[in-house]
Design a binder for these strands. Sequence first.
DNA 1: ACGCCTTGTGCAACTAGTTGCACAAACCCG
DNA 2: CGGGTTTGTGCAACTAGTTGCACAAGGCGT
Lengths: 189, 189
Amino acid sequence: MSLPHAILTALLEKPSSGLELTRRFDRSIGYFWSATHQQIYRELGKLESDGLIKALPSEQPARGQKKSYEVLSAGRAELARWTAAAQDPKPHRDTLLLRLRAAAVVGTAGLEADMRRHLELHEQQLAEYREIEKRDFPPGRDGAEDRLRHLVLRAGIDLETFWTQWLRRALADFPELAEGAPAGPSGRA
Amino acid sequence: MSLPHAILTALLEKPSSGLELTRRFDRSIGYFWSATHQQIYRELGKLESDGLIKALPSEQPARGQKKSYEVLSAGRAELARWTAAAQDPKPHRDTLLLRLRAAAVVGTAGLEADMRRHLELHEQQLAEYREIEKRDFPPGRDGAEDRLRHLVLRAGIDLETFWTQWLRRALADFPELAEGAPAGPSGRA
DNA sequence: ACGCCTTGTGCAACTAGTTGCACAAACCCG
DNA sequence: CGGGTTTGTGCAACTAGTTGCACAAGGCGT
């Protein structure tokens, strides 16, 4: 029940076509609510038929029939309603932690390499967030909108920081973990 | 593609019936891979027909036809394979962050109360993890299995710590955020 | 002019997870 | 001993997200 609201938010920030939305999801909103272009188009259709958004008359008729949408006031109202409504936090799902736990019974073979890869990915993501922070939130700007968005970005930064630290610590422990743990399918059947 | 592996892990730790698994998911594995009893029963059926687990002959024939399962060597092999295979981290999905972002365009009404509620929930979860740590990982034990599981628990603790801190900070900022941001549907249509 | 690449939109089928309900056996209480 | 609660198992329908493909329009190279 969140994708439509993510799209409404993005469209309120700036009316856009499906592809533009897709790109913005890749760069910004998608950091905490990812979506593919197929999902987005499907949802745009539904939002339009529900009367929450409408297609703008295309100023540029050319170029592959590009359609931009804007949010109607019913859409804005729905988004405000959803934002204010209480919602329980959804439990995390983390495959890597699951694999660690599995490794405790079937052995750590292969895990370390992938953890190193994850560490690199998280480091990259962290660097990207820091870039964005430098570019979009230089000290000085402090309108309420900016501060809210900055808060969201800080969450991203802190989360990635957490993961890089946790992974580094886990990898440091790894040599002693690998000896001693059951080594594979031949452990005990 | 992770639920079957979560179940295999749990069954290797200790052969169990569907309901026992459900309870253990609620208390332990479910902290990073939750599942309902319906999912679990469905998956047990599939794992059995795939020859990865098998039902133990019930020692206690009574008590509502309780069926326990144990992992076969094909199941252990599959789990080891899965654990070792590279996997990309799945992008997070966080509704609360999405709502903050939405609040930047439709106003912060109602959000603060729910953030306080989330803070409490995260504090509870954190306390629970700390209990578990004290109970299951007293200083001294350091077999490789225990250290791996402890590492996983640390991730849980640190994540909850992060959320409580982030929420506290966000709430502290809230008074200034609320003034100045657009206040509701009447902002601009 | 012809074929290839990129841009932009979208449908269809599949997979995983959620919600709602059903139902039998045992146990517990009066 | 009869009726409600708990224990234990499970099906069916629905919702959300993913994967794979299709196709038209315009640009670009030769």
